[in-house]
Amino acid sequence: MLTATPPQEQIACLHVQLAATQVSGGPSLAFGIDRIDDRLADHGLDGHALHEVAAASPALSDDAAATLFLAGLAARFAAAAGTVLWAVTRFDLYAPGLDQAGLSPDHLLFSEAREDNEVLALAEDGLRSGTLGAVVAEVGRISMTATRRLQLAAAEGRTPMLLFRRWRRRALCPLSEPSSATTRWRIRSVASQPLGHAGIGRPRWEVELVRQRNGNPFSLTLEACDDTGRLALPAPARHRAAGADRAAARAA
């Protein structure tokens, strides 16, 4: 039977200790969509941590969707006039397309390295300098130790690190390898909402959070980045434009 309540100062001390172990992250970047933010551990993406994104399949369309997802994240991380460093080994990005996801060309610095190790070294330099708004790196193979290094560098430089895991072999999802990233995302491009007329609607992605620290995975279908990098929820069925004739045409 509890007779004596613990002294108040002891409880406060324990609270402080608990907070010290938990608060290692920086400010979190919310998506502005409650159905995502509520399921993320700190109601958004940690601004001083490593996040991984991969395409759901080796197809180029999923790869491009993951690219734009990253571009939108980087644009929103660096929204306050920060510069984004985008490190690649083979430069096939098309800057006008990234511009339409919110990454304006004067805030986007590319570096083209010869191999993955160089990309990681560049990313680490960029993170530790602390002058960048965000760092994006595209790598094929990366070890657990290297992700740990990036995570530490991001925390030290107080800069978000976005790692794009490219597919190397057809059968092996890059997110199946272990990593110390705070969140790991998998992006697949899915069919857009059929319009009532000719043309293509706003692109849609299936955004799957494969793993997050202190939280559960989930999966959602979202509408792609607008020109400030913001995602959106698809409109509910009753608000949709009539697309019955298109669906009929497709079935025919």
Binding site: E112, D125, S129, T131
Partner: peptide
């Protein structure tokens, strides 16, 4: 509040690693 704006030291450091030609922006 903001982060230091001066990118020049970082650019020197990065171009020391991979050469100045491999570090670029894209202009229209």
């Amino acid at each position: 509040d903001g982060k230091p704006d001066d990118l020049a030291p970082l650019i020197d450091q990065l171009s020391a690693r991979i050469g100045s030609a491999a570090l670029f922006k894209v202009a229209p």
